[in-house]
Amino acid sequence: MADLKALYQEVILDHSKNPRNFHSLPDADRTAVGRNPLCGDQFTVYLRMDGDTIVDIGFEGQGCAISKSSASMMTQAVKGKTGVEAEGLFDRFHELVTGKPAEPEALGKLAVFSGVSEFPIRVKCASLAWHTLKAALEAKGAISME
């Protein structure tokens, strides 16, 4: 049976109620909007870069507990990382939430999202902000997850 406690862990609920870096960046030099048209979730991710390094990151928008907490924890995880490192982290994260974790130790705190793998419908929720980050890094203005 799917384990609700594994999905809605304390840390996840905390980040959904009190999201970190939940604001726009007035001096952002990259932004992207990510939408999930099926459920109406929408996030904007703001990046301030120094060369290839993410110096600052913020996000705004609305979504379920999983998508919002994932966005919040993502901003903490990628701040100070290079674009390439952030995308590498996204790959590890995607493996985790789809139940194929190759290097779970690389994920640190993000490992709390392992419960998502038991709820395949929610993978899109967990990865929406990450797809949006990737779009911002690749200077694509908007993405839509069908």
Binding site: Y8, A65, C125
Partner: peptide, 10 residues
């Protein structure tokens, strides 16, 4: 303030 997605999942 629970998102409808979370309601449906639970």
């Amino acid at each position: 303030d629970v998102h409808p997605h979370d309601i449906a999942s639970i």
